[in-house]
Design a protein around this nucleic acid. Structure first.
Length: 314
DNA sequence: CGTCTTTGACCGGCGC
DNA sequence: GCGCCGGTCAAAGACG
């Protein structure tokens, strides 16, 4: 188990751009100023004060950002641990046989869908009832139909209309609907690798960004990872595509070239790697530089510096 | 021939 | 009770 795969403090992204740049230099400057500088000393003070205020504000924002990343990092760590727990546990459980839920009169011997949440991810689903009676089983089925829901965002070609997310499992499409909140259709898949596997998947293009497929997974696989044999499975490690949007902190996980379970574990490890963190920092830096407020502040700071350092009088 | 996809119909929850 | 809407079924066809 790789439960301690990340040291949270390792992601302390020190992006502080403010106070470190100028105070020491600024404190050096007054001694070297020529006399004519005294005329504009009050103006410079004003600039300095304004600059300091901006820098302080940016420092605060940076600190908040760092905290947000840490929290996100922590949450992801927990999620990964849960996921690895599930992967590691053996699913061999006497399943109820009736893979298909029949409507109408056939329903009494229904599938025990609720089993997933109670057996494999206890702690995650804490409100499972005791299965002391059939009534409770029915209630569980009705009240807790989604023991675990996760979303995966996959970058695709916007012109590609196929709703296929290759995640290493074998899925059988059983429906497609156009929903109200999104013009693109939503496809419904069931895991077809094991007939008793209760996992369902919904795939729909994002309403905001049609180049992103949103795959919503419900439930837990009650079988091992499908590594070979399925037609859709592709092999060979390839880098995950992680993108952090400039306006909102979304992370896109591109699983299109991968199997899911072991590779998600690998993704967890990659997130810990210096390479990943460098990428994260670069993305954040890019986001910051795209922010007009940030560039304005930088421009102000530079112009302020230049006014303090007039060209050498040669 | 077996498996998968498509697609219209149906079911059930929910709000009014 | 009614209508809307998301989710599911299952027959028919496609495909290898």
């Amino acid at each position: 188990m790789e439960s301690s795969w990340i040291n949270t403090s390792s992601l302390a992204l020190d992006l502080t751009v403010g106070p470190r740049w100028f105070p020491d230099e600024a404190s050096r400057q007054p001694q070297t100023r020529s006399t004519h500088a005294q005329q504009s000393v009050s103006k410079k003070d004003e600039v300095e004060v304004g600059l300091e205020a901006k820098l302080n504000q940016m420092s605060k924002e940076n600190k908040m950002l760092t905290e947000m990343v840490s929290v996100m990092h922590y949450n992801y760590n927990a999620l990964c641990n849960q996921f690895l727990n599930v992967v590691g546990s053996s699913p061999s459980k006497g399943e109820v046989e009736s893979p298909r839920r029949k409507r109408k009169s056939e329903s009494p011997e229904m599938v025990n869908y609720g089993e997933v949440g109670s057996e494999k991810i206890d702690g995650v689903v804490s409100h499972n009832e005791s299965n002391s009676s059939e009534d409770n089983m029915f209630k569980r089925f009705r009240e807790d139909p989604k023991p675990k829901i996760s979303k995966v965002y996959v970058q695709t070609d916007p012109s590609d209309s196929s709703l296929v997310v290759k995640d290493g499992y074998q899925w059988r499409k059983y429906g497609q609907k156009v929903t109200r909140d999104n013009p693109s259709p939503r496809a419904y898949y069931r895991c077809s690798f094991a007939p008793t596997c209760p996992v369902k998947k919904k795939v729909q293009k994002s309403a905001e960004d049609r180049s992103i497929l949103v795959a919503t997974y419900e439930g837990e696989h009650n079988h091992g990872y499908l590594s070979q044999g399925a037609g859709s499975v592709q092999s060979g490690p390839q880098p995950f595509l992680v993108s952090i949007g400039p306006s909102c902190p979304t992370i896109t996980l591109d699983l299109t070239q991968q199997g899911s379970q072991p590779d998600l574990g690998r993704f967890c490890r990659e997130m810990e790697s210096p390479e990943f963190q460098r990428l994260l920092v670069e993305q954040m830096a890019t986001s910051l530089t795209k922010d007009p407020n940030f560039t304005t502040a930088i421009a102000d700071a530079i112009s302020g510096k230049m006014s303090q350092h007039p060209p050498a009088q040669n």
